[in-house]
Design a binder for these strands. Structure first.
Lengths: 212, 212
DNA sequence: ACACAAATTTAGGCTCGGCATAAATTTGGC
DNA sequence: GCCAAATTTATGCCGAGCCTAAATTTGTGT
């Protein structure tokens, strides 16, 4: 098998670089840390860092695949008779109650790192857009929309926007130093209001049919 | 008066640099053109270009102030008894009928320049966000929302999202080489559907009171 | 165990955007 | 026409990203 030692060491190297980078970023801020410093701290060549992480942002936001796919996956797995909006609301509320990273990202340090860096903020915007695109594709396929139909994209935009607004709220509260418990309480209330706001428009959209 | 020749020449220099840059960008693509080339073509020092336009993106998207303020201004100027959504719909439809840049930006060359450049695409995302923030501030002030209230931001996000979706549609059609007439027709239809979609949720939000 | 091929890492250098600083030039007011 | 202020220029530096060739490490076959 070729999936042996070589692949293992690659993953170790990659992880080591990522961990080192994250530590330095949290410690000194994303913009202050240079790729050369990361390479030195991880005891690899500068080029090796670039090989694994083409852009510097990738070192800090390594879980982007999960993030991008999250909403699309939630909607794809919605229950029979459940709308896309209802599924996203349910999933979001569950995440809030679990107190866990509504976001995949977590903690005030992490939020600070992003907020303090224009580069990371921009990348996060891009991730939100990619997430929206992924959701739009699921909606288009699931509602059997015509190719040129704007509806899935508009709906995906609205749904993602709702999520992004709450996401931002979590970030803001996290930056303000509130603990997870308080954040969960405040965001839960806000989430109900935001989802309720969209309910009249989207309650009937992309409802998964019940088998007849 | 100090608003004389000196200020005039500054504006001329600025305009000359901007025009030169735009021409080169359209001709060869944003990423291919270097700041040094722009400076040479405009017959100024490289540093002068940077002085007027701190970021390279600013050379291509010079009308950002107008863009950012557009939605906020439309809502601020809405008629008595008119909701924020209705005002934005009215303004958008009027722009479509005028055939003019729904966007402030216009033409397939311009759209191509942006679409081909990750840098410009990212900057455009940022401009959308700034536009959303500006709109949120107007809504918060106008509805006298409490400081921590998420509603204005959520509403601004939804309204901006609707606009952005249609904006994207214009870009796509422009890139596909459709002429202004066809774009206007297609987008007008799409716009009605998108605004209708939001109507149930936002018809009653931020309605300007009639003087009693 | 050894050699060879393939994969991975390293070293070096290059371009470009962005920023800092000081010198040189141009302009407005007197 | 002179002087102070504003503007432009020249120069150099840093960091991200990319390219290429050399060096090292690993997997496979004998």
């Amino acid at each position: 098998m070729t999936a042996g030692l070589r692949e293992l060491k690659k993953q170790q190297t990659r992880q080591s670089i990522s961990d080192t980078a994250t530590r330095l970023f949290i410690e000194h801020g994303f913009e202050k840390v240079t790729i050369a410093e990361i390479a030195a701290a991880a005891q690899v060549a500068k080029m090796t860092v670039t090989n694994y992480f083409p852009r510097k942002e990738d070192l800090a936001l390594d879980t982007h695949e999960t993030f991008i796919a999250s909403l699309a996956r939630t909607v794809a797995a919605r229950a029979e008779g459940e709308s896309a909006l209802a599924a996203l609301r349910r999933e979001f509320m569950a995440a809030v109650e679990r107190h866990d990273a509504v976001t995949g990202f977590s903690g005030p340090d992490f939020a600070r790192m992003i907020a303090d860096s224009p580069t990371l903020t921009a990348r996060l915007r891009e991730l939100h857009e990619l997430r929206e695109d992924a959701l739009a594709r699921v909606l288009a396929a699931d509602t059997e929309a015509a190719p040129g139909d704007l509806t899935p994209r508009a709906a995906a935009a609205l749904l993602t926007t709702a999520h992004r607004t709450l996401f931002q709220q979590v970030m803001d509260l996290s930056l303000a130093g509130r603990d997870n418990r308080e954040i969960a309480a405040v965001v839960a209330g806000a989430a109900h209001r935001v989802f309720d706001l969209l309910e009249p428009s989207l309650a009937g959209y992309a409802v998964r049919p019940r088998p007849s």
